[in-house]
C-alpha cells in the first residue's frame, strides 16, 4: 500500500507547483491588461480611474501576500539555532514589510486620491524597512557562504548601509545639480534616490547569488530582487529624462514592462519559496511512505 502512496503524493505536490505557476502567469497577464488598457477606467462611472488603480493594487497585493506567506512556510523548516534560519526569517520579514507598504498604499490612496501625498509617508517607512531586511538577509547569506568560519560582525552590514546612504547623498547632489527633482524638497529627493540605490545594490547582490546558486532551490527566492532591480532600473532611466529619447510607443511598452517586472518580482519569490517548501515536504513524504 505504502508504495502506492509515495509516487501519487509526490506527483500531486509537483502538480501543485505547476498549478501555482499557471495561476501566476494568469495573474501577470491580468495585471498587464488592467494596467495597460485600463478597462475599469473606461467604464463611465464616478472615480473609475480610482477603481482601476485599486484593481491593479489588489492584483499586486495578492502575489505580495503570497511571497510573504510562502516565505514564512519555508522559514518554518529551519530551527532558530540553524544558520539559514535568520537568513530566511529576515528575508520573509522584508516581504511582510512590503506587504505593509502595499496595504498602506490603499489607505493613502483613499485619503489622498485628489491631493498630493505628503513627502514622507508611513509607506516609505515600510519600503525602507523592507530594504533593510532584504539587505540584512543578503548579508547573512554572503557571510554564510564566504566567511563562515571567520564570523564577521553584523556591524559590517551597517557600514554597507552607511555607504549606500552616502552614495545616495552624492547622487542627490548630482541630481540637484542636473536640475532633476524640481519642486521637491531636498529630503524628498534624497528619499527618491535611496530607493533605486538600494534596489540596484540588492539586485546586484541577488544577481551574484543567482550565478552562485544557479537553479538551486535556495537561490531562486533571490531572483525576485533581480526583477525589482530591473523594474527600478527602468524607472531610474525615465526619471533622469530617458523618456525624452523614446517614442511614446516604446515609452509605454517599457513602462508596462517595468510594472509587470515589479509584480513578477513578488510572483517569482512566492513560487521559489513554494518550490523549496514543496521539495522538503516531498522528500519527507516520500521517505516516510517508503519506510
Amino acid at each position: 500500500m505504502s508504495e502506492n502512496i509515495a509516487p501519487n503524493s509526490t506527483s500531486k505536490r509537483r502538480r501543485t507547483i505547476w498549478v501555482w505557476a499557471a495561476a501566476s502567469a494568469i495573474l501577470l497577464v491580468l495585471f498587464a491588461w488592467v494596467y495597460y488598457f485600463e478597462p475599469i477606467k473606461n467604464l463611465s462611472f464616478p472615480n473609475s480611474d480610482y477603481w482601476n488603480d485599486k484593481a491593479t493594487d489588489v492584483i499586486i497585493l495578492v502575489p505580495a501576500l503570497a511571497a510573504a506567506i510562502s516565505g514564512a512556510l519555508l522559514t518554518r523548516h529551519f530551527k532558530p539555532s540553524e544558520p539559514p534560519y535568520r537568513i530566511w526569517l529576515i528575508f520573509t520579514l522584508g516581504w511582510w514589510a512590503w506587504v505593509g507598504g502595499e496595504v498602506l498604499g490603499f489607505v493613502y490612496d483613499y485619503f489622498y486620491w485628489f491631493a498630493d501625498y505628503p513627502e514622507f509617508t508611513f509607506i516609505d517607512v515600510f519600503w525602507l524597512l523592507g530594504y533593510v531586511f532584504f539587505g540584512l538577509s543578503l548579508y547573512y547569506q554572503f557571510r554564510l557562504i564566504y566567511s563562515y568560519k571567520r564570523g564577521r560582525k553584523s556591524a559590517l552590514y551597517f557600514s554597507f548601509i552607511a555607504i549606500g546612504l552616502l552614495l545616495a547623498l552624492g547622487l542627490t547632489q548630482l541630481a540637484l545639480a542636473a536640475g532633476l527633482g524640481e519642486g521637491y524638497s531636498w529630503a524628498a529627493l534624497y528619499l527618491a534616490v535611496i530607493y533605486p540605490v538600494f534596489d540596484l545594490a540588492e539586485g546586484a547582490a541577488a544577481l551574484w547569488l543567482f550565478f552562485l546558486f544557479g537553479r538551486g532551490y535556495l537561490g531562486r527566492p533571490w531572483w525576485g530582487l533581480i526583477a525589482f532591480a530591473v523594474a527600478d532600473g527602468i524607472n531610474i532611466f525615465f526619471w533622469i529624462g530617458g523618456y525624452n529619447w523614446l517614442s511614446d510607443q516604446v515609452y509605454y511598452s517599457l513602462d508596462l514592462f517595468s510594472n509587470v517586472a515589479y509584480v513578477a518580482g513578488y510572483l517569482i519569490t512566492a513560487l521559489a519559496f513554494l518550490a523549496a517548501h514543496e521539495h522538503i515536504e516531498r522528500g519527507i513524504t516520500a521517505s516516510a511512505s517508503s519506510r
Partner: peptide
C-alpha cells in the same frame, strides 16, 4: 556538514535520503 550549514537540517535530511 558544510551543506547543512547553508541549507539547514531539513534539506540535509531530504538530500541524504535521496
Amino acid at each position: 556538514d558544510r551543506y547543512e550549514s547553508i541549507a539547514g537540517r531539513r534539506f540535509l535530511e531530504v538530500t541524504g535520503k535521496e
